[in-house]
C-alpha cells in the first residue's frame, strides 16, 4: 500500500512540478515587461497595466483558472485546451502565469524604483551608456532587493499548484485526496503534506543561498 501511495503521489508531484516550473518560466519575463509598462511614460499603457493588476490581484486565482479552462469551450463551442491531462496542465500554466506575472510586476517595480537615483546619475557622469548603467550598476542592486519578496511568492506558488485540482488536473493534492476517497484512509494526506514540505524546504535553502551570496554588499 505504502509503495502504491508513494507512486501515485510522485505522479501528482510531477504534475505540480511542471505547473510550478512553467509558470515561473513564463511569469518572470512577463512580470518584468508588465513592471516596465507600469513605469511607462505613456499614461494609457500605465493605466492598462494598473487595471490588469487590479483585476488579477482582486479576484481569486481559482476563479481565474475556472474561467480560463471552461470559458473558451463555452464561448467558442470547442475546448481549445482538449480534455486530456496535458490540456489541463497547459490551461493551469496560462492562468497561473498571468496571475503571478501581476504579482511579480509589483515586486520588480519596487526593486527598480528602490535603487537610488544617485546610482544612475553617478554612472551617467562617469560616461557610462544606459545599458552599462543597467547591467553594471542597477541590476544586481535590484535583484538583491527583490529576493526576499520573490521567495514569498515562489513558495506560495508551490502550494497554489493544488488549485489545479478544481479543473481535475491530477496534481499532488488530488493524488493524496483520491486515496482518502477510494480507501477511506487519511495518512496519505499527511504524506502529501510531507512532499510539499520537502519541495518548499529545498526552495527555502536555495533562496537562503542566494541571499547569502548577495550579502557582501548593502
Amino acid at each position: 500500500m505504502f509503495w502504491s501511495v508513494t507512486q501515485s503521489l510522485l505522479d501528482g508531484l510531477w504534475t505540480s512540478f511542471e505547473i510550478f516550473i512553467f509558470t515561473l518560466l513564463f511569469s518572470l519575463p512577463l512580470g518584468l515587461i508588465l513592471s516596465f509598462g507600469a513605469m511607462s511614460r505613456w499614461k494609457i499603457l500605465r493605466g492598462l497595466v494598473q487595471t490588469l493588476v487590479w483585476i488579477i490581484r482582486g479576484t481569486p486565482l481559482m476563479l481565474q483558472l475556472i474561467i480560463i479552462f471552461y470559458g473558451p469551450g463555452l464561448w467558442l463551442g470547442h475546448n481549445i485546451w482538449n480534455g486530456s491531462e496535458s490540456g489541463r496542465i497547459t490551461a493551469t500554466v496560462v492562468a497561473f502565469s498571468i496571475n503571478y506575472a501581476c504579482y511579480f510586476s509589483v515586486i520588480f517595480r519596487g526593486g527598480i524604483e528602490g535603487v537610488p537615483v544617485g546610482q544612475r546619475e553617478a554612472g551617467e557622469v562617469l560616461g557610462m551608456t544606459k545599458s552599462q548603467i543597467f547591467f553594471k550598476v542597477t541590476l544586481l542592486q535590484m535583484i538583491k532587493r527583490v529576493v526576499p519578496p520573490m521567495s514569498n511568492e515562489v513558495i506560495t506558488l508551490v502550494k497554489d499548484t493544488s488549485l489545479a485540482r478544481i479543473i481535475a488536473a491530477y496534481e499532488l493534492t488530488f493524488a493524496g485526496y483520491s486515496f482518502m476517497k477510494s480507501s477511506g484512509i487519511t495518512w496519505p494526506l499527511f504524506y502529501t503534506g510531507v512532499f510539499y514540505l520537502i519541495f518548499v524546504g529545498i526552495l527555502t535553502l536555495l533562496f537562503n543561498y542566494i541571499e547569502r551570496r548577495l550579502d557582501y554588499f548593502r
Binding site: 553617478a122 562617469l126 554588499f217
Partner: peptide, 28 residues
C-alpha cells in the same frame, strides 16, 4: 563624451555598493 570634461563628487557619495573601493574607481 561631453560629460567626461567634468567630474562630479556628490553630496551622498553615490558609490556603487556591489563593488570594492578599487573597482568603484576603475569601473568606468
Amino acid at each position: 563624451r561631453k560629460r567626461l570634461h567634468f567630474g562630479m563628487v556628490f553630496q551622498s557619495f553615490n558609490l556603487f555598493p556591489q563593488y570594492t573601493a578599487l573597482e568603484n574607481v576603475t569601473l568606468s
